[in-house]
Design a protein around this nucleic acid. Structure first.
Lengths: 251, 251
DNA sequence: CGTCTGTTTGATAGCGCTCAAAGGGGGTGG
DNA sequence: CCACCCCCTTTGAGCGCTATCAAACAGACG
């Protein structure tokens, strides 16, 4: 979790929105349909807008740390970040990758229960928790939306419990690649070409294995003709989806 | 535990509760302060009451299975049950133990994402999902309560990810016992005497290890003088809380 | 061209799993 | 009250998967 950059970006770049624009940032938001905001309209959006700050982080920047006062809640508008937990001796478990449209800080009440760090450059909408909670009591449908989000997160994370508790290295990586592929499909991109924004160390920290094991497992998959690496990128071509599915050992 | 009426299993393995009491079940509920219902009053409670059915299960009874249509949502009023996921070859991961005051079915939207089975005899309040959701739109504060519950569940389950992904067998069991001890403390019982309602196979399925390893680890803890077994019960006396905490390797 | 970070590969060790069997404890029926 | 059974727990022996340690390799970048 290094940020050896010369500058301190730990509080992100502020991009206070120019009020001169006749279209409010929220109304103009390109990914609004995936957000909490999606249930709001008109002046409700204005309300939301007034408590929102758009912030930018650089790849590698810490966003918050476990145990800190959970002052803010975030919604990611571009880029990807990781949520992780640390043990005192440095072992790290990534609890999730958060990207466009995802909500950040939902699990936390008074204190952040994980640390967050930008993997790529990241743009987020930031809300002060107290402001959002006030808004929540005014617009119940927003609370319902949040509840839905929390629900689906719970379902996802339970699958991860099964993966970490019971699956072998092969099954874990197969599940991971399969999930990435499915996600691509959902957003309308090719399921046969997966772009890994995280490095293999991070994949390992997510799947509960070492980077070496990730590498060896990848190689085994390549040798079996299930996947292929695209040169000079972290992209991976999935050649045999069926083999991946059967290795995945679930669903 | 509660209820004046004697339990009658003659209608099959669960019993619809009679509403003979002149005090509405919800208003009379002894553990209401821990529930969704805690935010409701007076006629709101009546509303809730009208869509609630109290159901009893015997130890070992299945409550629902993964993939089934998620028609109901539950609140446990007595006993303990387990939530678990299965792999095709039979490997099982318990995703949580649900006991008095806990909510069941929150993670699920259309279909149950886990299976649930009673460990002890269990008494639950059952709501039809659609009914509850209608009530939710009428009483937003109930939604907020649910959101809070979901949040804290997310925080708990993230700790479990760290445990399953990164901790050793010793650390897992130490964490588990420590959590059980802490839970006791919270409900006002002695933190030095933990009652394990689940068997060691289930502990293993929860902690991502085999029952043999659970047994061996327990023995190691006993040999080190950290815990002691109480004869003829599944109770465990925690002798050295500090040692447990340091083994736990977190917090 | 050298440095840095991330990946790959090899050699080795050890934790926890698997398989197997013995040892309780509680319940049931004789 | 004892005998028996069943389920759970314990213990042992051996192995395999994955971690660990170490070093070479490969791209990216200045």
């Amino acid at each position: 979790m290094s940020t050896s950059s010369s500058q301190d970006y730990s509080h992100g770049y502020y991009t206070e929105y120019s009020r001169s624009s006749h279209l409010s940032p929220c109304a103009a938001c390109k990914v609004r349909d995936k957000f909490v905001c999606s249930v709001l309209e008109g002046d409700e959006l204005e309300q939301l807008n007034s408590i929102m700050t758009e912030v930018t982080y650089r790849a590698g920047d810490p966003i918050f740390s476990e145990g800190e006062n959970a002052e803010y809640i975030f919604n990611v508008t571009s880029g990807t970040l990781k949520l992780y937990k640390l043990l005192p001796d440095g072992r790290s478990q990534i609890t999730g990758f958060i990207s466009v449209g995802d909500f950040l800080g939902l699990a936390d009440s008074q204190f952040y229960s994980s640390s967050a760090e930008a993997i790529t450059d990241v743009q987020i909408c930031r809300f002060r928790r107290v402001d959002l909670e006030k808004l929540l009591s005014d617009y119940p449908k927003m609370g319902n939306k949040l509840l839905k989000i929390a629900r689906s997160e719970l379902a996802v994370i339970q699958d991860q419990l099964l993966l970490l508790g019971r699956k072998t290295a092969d099954e874990r990586l197969a599940s991971f690649l399969s999930t990435m592929s499915r996600r691509n499909e959902i957003i309308g991109e090719s399921p046969d070409m997966v772009q890994l924004i995280m490095n293999q160390n991070e994949i390992g920290e997510y799947l509960g294995m070492t980077p070496e094991t990730v590498s060896r497992t990848m190689r085994r998959f390549r040798d079996k003709g299930i996947i292929a690496k695209i040169k000079h990128t972290r992209n991976i071509s999935i050649i045999d989806q069926a083999a991946l599915k059967s290795l995945e050992c679930s669903y």
